[in-house]
Design a protein around this nucleic acid. Sequence first.
DNA 1: CGATGTGTTGATGTGCGTCAATAGAAGTGG
DNA 2: CCACTTCTATTGACGCACATCAACACATCG
Lengths: 231, 231
Amino acid sequence: MDQDLDRVRKAPLFSGLFPEELERLLAHARRRSLKAYETLFSEGDKAAAFYFIVEGSVRLYRLSPQGDEKVIEILMAGQTFGEAVVFLGGHYPVYAAALADTVLIEIPTNDFVRVLKENSGMALRMLAALSMRLHQLINDVQALTLETAGQRVAGYLLAQCPEGAAAADIHIQVHKNIVASRLGVKPETFSRVLATLREQGLITVAGNDIHIADRARLARWRDEAYAGGRS
Amino acid sequence: MDQDLDRVRKAPLFSGLFPEELERLLAHARRRSLKAYETLFSEGDKAAAFYFIVEGSVRLYRLSPQGDEKVIEILMAGQTFGEAVVFLGGHYPVYAAALADTVLIEIPTNDFVRVLKENSGMALRMLAALSMRLHQLINDVQALTLETAGQRVAGYLLAQCPEGAAAADIHIQVHKNIVASRLGVKPETFSRVLATLREQGLITVAGNDIHIADRARLARWRDEAYAGGRS
DNA sequence: CGATGTGTTGATGTGCGTCAATAGAAGTGG
DNA sequence: CCACTTCTATTGACGCACATCAACACATCG
């Protein structure tokens, strides 16, 4: 538990807190374990806490009335989620479920708000964090309306590999159908796009390990509004 | 100018500020006028200010490399925009342009941040405002991936009319192609959906004035995942 | 080693975008 | 105030990107 809390302290959102503030923030924090696929909360649930991922991964998603699912975000160890809702009348706007066996730190919103009120630096960092999510969602909206399925998949691959290198190996840490949903594509289409990229020599695929031969070429392919049908 | 500033004071975001804080916030505020279609800022521009709309309306949008446009948000008098960017390294993530002749109050981010640092209530209200935008964007993402064009248009109409009444008259205050882009649909499709709704007796259309006969029936129509092709 | 679930690939369907023609509204200038 | 231009909106014909439906390969696990 103590070493878990140490990880919380290292989260960017909480850096810059005085020790006594951190103390108060984590005073009533609880450690929680989830088995793979276990649901943490549902859309509409009363939100009394937000979460820090110690290990494992979580997906946030929405459901249509027909039961179709859209993954809004995939979160990995070290990230926080649910903070935004603190300020929204206290109801989660999404579902949250573990993608693998997962360990979380659950932090009550009360303590969080109390710290925010007295530490304006923390509030500003929080605003910055929310702004980044906002920006990310704007990117998603643009991608969903202005880009083809192929472009979104290519963009995802490019986003996964580090900036500098010309080539890169990336490893998809969750099931492909989760990634597909995140990108707003059906699993079949996701698979087909990868096949096309493979045929064109842009990537090689071995299970969840994907090797990108040439980032620049892949980026060029994406920018050509190429659809994804082979021919 | 003074009566313009009075309107700023009444914005929900700024209510609850002490007079001297408001004073500081608006110390270097400028009044700006835009002609219809004039661009206020572009994506990537350095952001040194955010805006309050005194009168008129503004659209925030993105452009694809091919020049296709997606309207992210339509803003009317009384609303603010560009606040989020203050915390994002200072570059606007969208374009902003006037939809009609428009009057704005331009508030430097410096003054804003200074007030935020010293008024935690203000910071919390700001967090709440950002959270609402976040929530709205999540709704947009869900709608774009899980709903048909017809459902999005119907949802838009339903969102435009007041809660209580069974019937309602709404007036589209901007060009229909702007609304269409906001909804992630082509103008032709938007027009066709309205035509279908008209044929089914759900609405009557006269230019930009739309009468909704029965909100409940329209909501039912939307929930039936009906596509929009007349059969 | 059968059972269950994920991923791939093929055949087919369709929602909506594209292209095009026309009607109507709005703005411009003499 | 009326011709003329320009732009938005509507409607039709057509095409395509992607979803859907279906069969199969493959991995994981009890």
